[in-house]
Nucleic acid binder design. Structure first.
Length: 295
DNA sequence: AGTTGTCAAGCTAGT
DNA sequence: ACTAGCTTGACAACT
C-alpha cells in the first residue's frame, strides 16, 4: 500500500498551485507561473520520496488556464522536457500519481457546452500525465456529475459520453463515489456498462451508501481495476468534529484510521488521505500503517 | 505587513 | 426565475 496526500505540501514553503487572475493573463505570466509550479512540484516529490510517501495527487492548477480559450500558448512544447524529467523522478521512485479535475468537469451535463469544456479539461489532464511518460496506472478521477432530475438518464448520458472520449483520456479516467448523488452502488452500475474503474472514497461512502461495509465495498471496487490500471485507489478522510456533515477533518483521527485499515485488511490498494493538514497527517498515517500487524 | 473580498468553470436546494 | 451554498487556496486590492 502506498500512502499520499493531495496537491500541496504545507511545510516546504512553496506550492505547485500558484495561479493568477484571468485579467492579468499574459504569455509571460503563464510561463513564469508554470516554471515556479513545476519547480515546487519537484521539491514536493523529493520531500515525499525521502519520507516514503509514494502516492501523490498532482494539482490541476499546475498549468493555469490550460483548457481555457485564453490560453493559446503551446505550453506542451515549451515544458515537454521539464515534464519528462519530472516523470522520470516519479518512475524511478515507483511513485503512484493521480489527478482530480474540479467539480465543474462534468461529462454528463445536459449543457453541451459544459460537456465540451469538461472534455478539454480532461484532455489537459491526460496530456500532463502523457508528457511525464507515466503508464496507465496514473489516473484521473472525477465524479459522475449532476442528476438533472433524472438519475437514470444522467447515468446513461455519462456512459454514452464516456465511450466517446479519446483513448488517451479513457485509459486514465476513473469515477469516484460522492456523498450526495452517486453512491458506490450507482458507480458499480456505470462501471459495469462502461468498463470504467471505480475509485472508492471511504468517507463519502460512510455518508451515502446501501449498507455495504468497507470490506465488501472495497472488494467489489477492486474487481473494476484491471492489471494495467494498477492497484485500486482509495480516498480516505474522516468527519471534522462539529463540522457540517461531509466536512473533512483538520487532522487525522488515528483511531478512526486504524479501524478503517483493520476493516479492509487483506485487500491491496493505494491510499490518498484527504485531510487538511496534508503531509503532517500522511506521515502519521504512514507510521501507523507500518506498525500495525496486518496481513 | 496584514486583512479581506474575489476568483474560469456548475449543480442543487430553497425561495 | 433567481440566489445562496458548496469548498478552497491564493491572488489582488485594500488597510
Amino acid at each position: 500500500m502506498k500512502i499520499g496526500y493531495p496537491c500541496i505540501n504545507r511545510s516546504i514553503g512553496c506550492t505547485p498551485n500558484r495561479t493568477f487572475r484571468l485579467a492579468s493573463y499574459s504569455k509571460e505570466r503563464l510561463i513564469e507561473t508554470i516554471e515556479m509550479n513545476l519547480e515546487s512540484l519537484e521539491m514536493m516529490i523529493e520531500y515525499n520520496i525521502e519520507r516514503g510517501l509514494l502516492f501523490l495527487r498532482i494539482t490541476s492548477s499546475i498549468i493555469p488556464f490550460a483548457s481555457h480559450p485564453v490560453c493559446r500558448y503551446d505550453w506542451k512544447r515549451h515544458f515537454k522536457a521539464h515534464l519528462r524529467s519530472i516523470g522520470k523522478m516519479i518512475k524511478k521512485a515507483k511513485m503512484r500519481i493521480s489527478m482530480h479535475p474540479d467539480q465543474f468537469t462534468l461529462i454528463n451535463s445536459k449543457d453541451v457546452h459544459v460537456y465540451k469544456r469538461a472534455v478539454r479539461e480532461l484532455e489537459y489532464h491526460a496530456d500532463i500525465l502523457d508528457l511525464m511518460g507515466l503508464n496507465r496506472d496514473a489516473k484521473i478521477q472525477i465524479h459522475v456529475g449532476g442528476v438533472y432530475d433524472d438519475k437514470l438518464a444522467s447515468m446513461k448520458r455519462f456512459i454514452a459520453r464516456y465511450r466517446k472520449l479519446s483513448k488517451k483520456v479513457r485509459k486514465r479516467l476513473v469515477i469516484e463515489n460522492d456523498e450526495r448523488l452517486y453512491s458506490l452502488f450507482d458507480c458499480l452500475v456505470i462501471s459495469k456498462a462502461a468498463k470504467i474503474p471505480i475509485l472508492f472514497d471511504s468517507f463519502h461512502h460512510s455518508i451515502l451508501n446501501n449498507d455495504e461495509n468497507y470490506y465488501d465495498a472495497l472488494k467489489s471496487v477492486s474487481k473494476t481495476w484491471k492489471r494495467l490500471d494498477g492497484l485500486p485507489m482509495v480516498d480516505y478522510s474522516s468527519q471534522r468534529p462539529e463540522g457540517r456533515v461531509g466536512a473533512h477533518t483538520e487532522s487525522i483521527d488515528l483511531e478512526n484510521f486504524k479501524k478503517f485499515l483493520k476493516s479492509v485488511d487483506g485487500i491491496d490498494f493505494d491510499l490518498m488521505l484527504e485531510i487538511k493538514d496534508k503531509e503532517e497527517s500522511a506521515l502519521k498515517a504512514l507510521h501507523l500503517s507500518r506498525h500495525l500487524h496486518l496481513k
